[in-house]
Simulated scan of single mutants.
Amino acid sequence: MAKQVAENIQTVLRRLQEGDLLPVYLLTGEENYYIDVLSDFFENKVVDEVSRSFDQTVLYGRDVNMDSVVGMAKRYPVLGPRQLVLVKEAQDIRDWEPLMSYLDKPAPTTVLVFCYRHKKMDKRTRLFQQLKKTGEVFDYQRIYESQLPQWITDYVESSGYTILPGCALLLAESLGNNLSLIANELSKIFAVLGEKGAVTASVVERVTGISKEYNVFELQTAIGRRDVVKCNRIVNYFAANPKSNPIQMVLPTLYSYLVRLMIYIQLPDKSDAATALGVNPFFIKEYANAAGNFTLGKLASCIGYLNEADLRSKGIRNAGTVTDGEILKELVFKIIH
């Protein structure tokens, strides 16, 4: 899924770059990253730099009504062969009805683009159907967190670099489901690497500050091995650096890991375990090894410990005298003993 999305956006950009432009575009969906990528393309590539002062208009939905937008779209370009009317935050426009008549006969020399964020336009409406008929609708939904490592791998490879699955997972777990943030951090890494190279844990740590040794990914690996020394070293680091490793980010990751481990143990056929767990096949050996160190009963208890730690970190059953670092230390001790 992540690969398909990454390929789709690249295909779209190539097609638009070739000049195959339609009269109107709607950029929408829950994933703002793709809206930003396409919006930046339209703003920087449709009208040449010399003509932009005359043939490019950028509007914001909260400042205009649709009558004004349509009026600008009907104008003729001054210097170039076409003009761009780009409407950002278009979801703030209240009345879209005046657009209907324009869509019946759009200006052939205008590219009209709407960036519709944060909420969905009703696909059953006549307006949405007419937008699809006259122009093109790009609707990008947020990808699942389990797809983030693959999305990162595809993004890195499409940019001409390489990355190991473990490093992609490190970035995914450290940065979360924020494609704009991930892309920004990767751009910094690419700048350091030059024209080509491998995105390694060392490079990631040097550029982003994400530790290759002291991160939640290494913690879950140490837990799977029941490596007491390494677990203690990592949780002590977390306790000393709570802003870099907040317990609110650590607990969900450990929960997902333990749930996947429970699923793995119960799989009757482990030949397709990667698909069942939603992870890269690279990590299946780790789950296989961890499965030998935990029983289902122990894992069920660990889930209970996690729930208790989550409540205490939120101030429930905690008078405020126990720090997040102490809660995490106690949790990991219970899991590995």
Rank of each mutant, 00 (worst) to 15 (best):
W96F: 09
I143T: 13
E326S: 14
T221L: 04
V207K: 12
I93K: 10
T153K: 14
M262A: 14
C167W: 03
E136T: 09
R126D: 12
L261M: 08
P106H: 06
D122P: 02
T110M: 00
D154V: 12
A6G: 05
N245G: 08
P23N: 05
K196G: 04
V5S: 12
E308V: 06
N32F: 03
M100A: 15
S202Y: 11
G325L: 08
L38D: 05
K119W: 02
N32L: 08
A172C: 02
T109F: 02
R226C: 05
R126Q: 15
C115S: 13
A300Q: 14
E157L: 03
F41L: 01
D92C: 04
V332D: 13
I152N: 11
V64K: 12
Q147D: 10
V111F: 01
D104L: 00
S101D: 14
L27N: 11
V24K: 02
L193G: 10
E18V: 01
K329V: 02
I303H: 12
I35E: 13
A2M: 05
P149Q: 05
S174K: 07
T162G: 05
D139L: 04
A273N: 07
I247A: 12
Q56E: 13
T125G: 08
S158G: 15
E157W: 02
V12F: 01
S53V: 11
L86E: 11
I336T: 15
E89L: 01
L277G: 03
Y305Q: 13
R62L: 08
L219H: 10
F333C: 10
Q17A: 15
V207T: 14
T11F: 06
